[in-house]
Write a protein that binds this DNA or RNA. Sequence first.
DNA 1: GATGAATGAGAGTTCATTCAT
DNA 2: AATGAATGAACTCTCATTCAT
Lengths: 195, 195, 195, 195
Amino acid sequence: MAKRSGEKYHVLIDSAVKTFARTGYHRTRVADIAREAGVADGTVYIYFENKEDILVSLFQELMISFVDNLYCELVQCQNATEKLAAIIKYHLSILADNPDRARVTQIELRQIDQVINEGISKPLLKYFQLIEEVIEEGKMQRLYRQNLNTRTARKVVFGAIDEVVTCWVLSSKSYDLTALCEPVYDLLVRGLQEV
Amino acid sequence: MAKRSGEKYHVLIDSAVKTFARTGYHRTRVADIAREAGVADGTVYIYFENKEDILVSLFQELMISFVDNLYCELVQCQNATEKLAAIIKYHLSILADNPDRARVTQIELRQIDQVINEGISKPLLKYFQLIEEVIEEGKMQRLYRQNLNTRTARKVVFGAIDEVVTCWVLSSKSYDLTALCEPVYDLLVRGLQEV
Amino acid sequence: MAKRSGEKYHVLIDSAVKTFARTGYHRTRVADIAREAGVADGTVYIYFENKEDILVSLFQELMISFVDNLYCELVQCQNATEKLAAIIKYHLSILADNPDRARVTQIELRQIDQVINEGISKPLLKYFQLIEEVIEEGKMQRLYRQNLNTRTARKVVFGAIDEVVTCWVLSSKSYDLTALCEPVYDLLVRGLQEV
Amino acid sequence: MAKRSGEKYHVLIDSAVKTFARTGYHRTRVADIAREAGVADGTVYIYFENKEDILVSLFQELMISFVDNLYCELVQCQNATEKLAAIIKYHLSILADNPDRARVTQIELRQIDQVINEGISKPLLKYFQLIEEVIEEGKMQRLYRQNLNTRTARKVVFGAIDEVVTCWVLSSKSYDLTALCEPVYDLLVRGLQEV
DNA sequence: GATGAATGAGAGTTCATTCAT
DNA sequence: AATGAATGAACTCTCATTCAT
């Protein structure tokens, strides 16, 4: 039923990002997004199933392009360690450049009900997979410890980056996020590396 | 105006934890918490300002005892590295033992509005401080690198632990969370240590 | 935000008059007005800010037309004394013909909070002004005493008419209100007149 | 069941006058009156049936002493015209001296439901009777017109005085109310008098 | 496809009143 | 007589969603 494409669809996604970032998901009324997009309230329901669907769709759009572009970056890297650096850099840069997107990703997207989480977790899993592949590759390349539990390592890596971004968002983005690429990389790579 | 103490206050806090964990903050009606606590709807408003105040108060109660007890554990440790292990162990054990509390902490508490965040961040900052003190101590004890940025290191440490818990909660707590103490510690301590 | 115009707006005003007259302002639920008007509860809030706004708007509507029509009557009078008679006659006739309106005006409208009074007093002031102009005119035409304090005279005139209506409303409108035009006029005009 | 006497009863009446004057009847909580009186909420219900009973009792207390004292003033007057002057003077003076009482009488007391009105109207009727007796006396003494309708005249007299007080209350009591005794008397007495 | 007026279920909150102590 | 914690009915207002135009 929901169209999920067309020019207005993307306008609505952008308006939703902006509005959610400004007001928060629960405080945002569907009418607010419609007004921001310059369309009527009812129009929103041509493109989305319901309010939650806007948040989920928005995340999928963002996440798919995020993973796609990150993938492009990674193929240009020589080894797992370079790739780890690329992941951190890409993750931090993208969000540093898109503060609205950062707020939505770090704060608003965590406001979703259990059930809907699945819609969100699917594209996120792709990202997790990518990280795990890099870790596996590092182990194969003897760069990382063999006894490393890949899944746990991925959680540590993602959790560290994620927390760094969240702190930046909550600090009202008052400093340069990308400056943290180096120290975060440093901490994580040592944790992973062969002694 | 809100009483914020007394036997019923604690009964209500417990009921709120249980109900939020089961249904999620936004889906929970104040009446649900009241029924769970075996009191009338109006009674809730003798002890709390409003619905949000329940969530904030609940977090403060949990966090204050969390930090207090963690502090007791830490004074029994010999050095920073032992303390880091203690932090990870304590953090994971507490939440592993209190699944409702874990769900509320990891998921529901992130559903709060910007402004109210302050009520939440204060007790959380105490925890962050504790972690940072351990890192500083490690640097003084020459266990950790001198060029370590304490704040960033804290974010990495907390982010890693936090993500590990979140994944466990979202996995429906299907495995033993405390089993991850070792590998997480391993990853983090290497990142911090002197080469 | 409130629309304050359109067909439904007037239907709602009428329903509110009827319902307030029947049940009283405080005993009336917004849902009662909605049902009387044959619309959904929420529809009321498209046209009015809140419940109080209904009462205030209703009064403004009534009062504005009251003053406008009274003005038309007055321009047809030859002198101040004729005008005084016209005011009394018009005031009593209108309310005698609209018992619901009379009840709302005399009883329910006095149930409003200080602050909101301003919304009410503005259109009422127009009426007061009209009365004062007639009194001034009477003084200029040497019909009324020169040492008459216009403001006080207005209060006496309005207070007298108003009380007559209130008593009629409280008596369950059991007699002909317009029969009092003559005696009231008689009493007031003598009070005003030159000896 | 309600005690309606004793020291605390009068303290509560006074607190109610003060609180109703300050906040308005509907905005006042029973708890507010209790706090103002320095007693527990439940204590109010030892002395009064319910919230409305407070307002009604308060009015009866005020009105009974009002009429009693006015009666004392009137017996000292020689004729109806002196008595009319005494009524106006007494009415305005009492309320000028008790601004809280004035506000409650003029504004808050009009906020009552139809049914309860009866409780209020009884003591008020005594006052009306007194005025009517004076008018009748005036007619007997050939001071006032024989064709005067006593009831209507009473309404005009009371309405005029009442409106003068109401305007004063709504003006935040910014001028001397008793200064209006003369002009009001002047207007009313001429209306009543024989030509 | 687009509109936006209308819907109506739903929930937070208040507060008069009660009653065990 | 006095207390004040507890009650729970009541009601306003919001806002996601629909559908006739």
